[in-house]
Design a protein around this nucleic acid. Sequence first.
DNA 1: CAGCCGATAAGCT
DNA 2: GCTTATCGGCTGA
Length: 227
Amino acid sequence: MAPSALQPCAPGTFPTRSFFEQPPEFVAPRLLGKLLARNFKGRWLVGRIVEAEAYLGPHSRTPDAAAHSHRGPTPRNAVLFGPAGHSYVYSIYGRYFCMNISCEPAGRAGCVLLRALEPLAGIALMASNRGLDPKTAKPCQLTSGPSRLCQALALTRAAQNAIDLLSPRSQLQILEDGFCVTECLATPRIGISPSNPAFDWPLRFVLPGNPFVSGPRKHSGARHRIR
DNA sequence: CAGCCGATAAGCT
DNA sequence: GCTTATCGGCTGA
């Protein structure tokens, strides 16, 4: 992808709305390899999704106590109960943000948390948004981690919550560019407390071996090949 | 260099 | 009081 200035539009084509109307555990692994594009001050910042987690809605047969929606709608999580394919950005621990994509048809909740991107375009701007020196920052420091990618793309709840990711007029879009994913790995989700019944559910999906996947180099816990 | 610890401090219970 | 996180500082190999 050419890191040129002032592209008129983001690269690729939109997935369908019905793709996101599926359950999050269906959407999350199939989101790997797709692009997240953010129009920031006239420039497109683009990264490929290499890690994502599914969070199940309250209608699920087995309640997902790690999901914001699991006790039903609140002002904060309202977008999760709206139409599919919209951004859900929330603040965590009072200082960072995480970005999710709403799944399931309107009336039901469920979402996919974006945990890591491989930066493709606008890399110097991403570094600067992260407060790093664009000349010395390593690509792995930019978008490997759910709050890091929000910083790199300048995503906040105030400005980027509830955006339709499937509209060509949106400043934040999900796109596909023909990138072929041949396999992905499922693992337990990161950061779920051991007392949570959903602690070890294999709902985290990564491109195996991709250097931009977040987390420590050593991973404990079983991994499963799912396709 | 890897791993652990504390600070941070919104939103919901 | 808990949580879908990150960073800097410390500590031990």
